[in-house]
Simulated scan of single mutants.
Amino acid sequence: MYERFGKRLLDVVGALLLLGLLAPVFLAVAVAVRLRLGWPVLFVQPRAGRGGQPFTLLKFRSMAPGPAPDAERLTRFGQVLRASGLDELPQLVNVLRGEMSLVGPRPLPLSYLAHYSARQALGLRVRPGLVGPGVAAGRNAVAWPQRLELGAEYAAAPLRLHRDLWLALRSLLVLLRGQGATAPGHATMPAFAALPDGPRRQGE
Results as ranks from 00 to 15, higher is better:
Leu195Lys: 09
Pro24Asp: 00
Val33Tyr: 01
Leu86Arg: 03
Arg177Thr: 05
Leu86Asp: 00
Lys59Arg: 13
Gly104Phe: 06
Leu159Arg: 14
Pro46Trp: 04
Arg76Phe: 01
Asp11Gly: 12
Leu18Trp: 02
Glu72Phe: 08
Glu204Tyr: 03
Gly134His: 12
Leu18Asn: 01
Pro54Arg: 04
Gly78Tyr: 07
Val31Gly: 02
Trp166Gln: 11
Pro196Met: 02
Ala187Cys: 09
Arg8Ile: 00
Leu150Gly: 11
Leu195Thr: 15
Glu88Tyr: 06
Ala191Cys: 07
Met63Pro: 05
Arg34Leu: 00
Pro158Asn: 15
Leu169His: 10
Leu42Asn: 01
Gln120Ile: 10
Phe77Asn: 04
Glu153Arg: 15
Arg73His: 10
Val135Cys: 13
Pro145His: 09
Asp70His: 02
Val135Gln: 13
Leu10Thr: 13
Gly78Ala: 08
Thr188His: 12
Arg34Phe: 04
Gly203Phe: 05
Thr188Ile: 14
Pro54Phe: 01
Val126Asn: 04
Pro24Ala: 01
Asp70Gln: 02
Gly78Asp: 02
Ala193Val: 07
Ser171Lys: 09
Met189Arg: 15
Val95Ile: 05
Gln120Val: 11
Pro190Trp: 00
Gly180Lys: 14
Val29Met: 05
Asn140Tyr: 08
Met63Phe: 02
Glu153Val: 12
Ala191Ile: 00
Leu172Glu: 07
Arg4Gln: 15
Ser101Val: 11
Ala32Arg: 00
Ala136Pro: 10
Met1Leu: 10
Leu74Met: 07
Arg200Pro: 02
Gly51Ser: 05
Phe192Glu: 01
Leu22Ile: 03
His186Glu: 08
Pro184Asn: 09
Ser62Gly: 10
Gly123Arg: 15
Leu9His: 08
Leu17Arg: 01
Gly132Thr: 10
Ala141Thr: 11
Val142Ser: 14
Gln202Arg: 10
Pro190Gly: 04
Ser101His: 10
Glu88Arg: 06
Ser171Thr: 11
Asp164Leu: 14
Glu153Gln: 13
Tyr116Thr: 10
Ala137Asp: 12
Leu175Trp: 01
Pro65Trp: 05
Leu165Gly: 06
Leu167His: 12
Leu165Cys: 09
Trp166Met: 10
Gln179Met: 13
Ala68Gly: 06
Leu10Ala: 15
Arg119Val: 10
Leu124Met: 08
Leu42Thr: 01
Lys7His: 15
Gln202Cys: 12
Pro133Phe: 12
Pro109Met: 03
Gln120Ser: 12
Leu161Arg: 12
Gly198Arg: 06
Ala48Met: 09
Leu175Thr: 02
Gly134Val: 13
Tyr154Glu: 13
Ala68Trp: 07
Arg201Gly: 13
Ala191Arg: 03
Leu21Trp: 02
Ala136Val: 12
Leu195Arg: 10
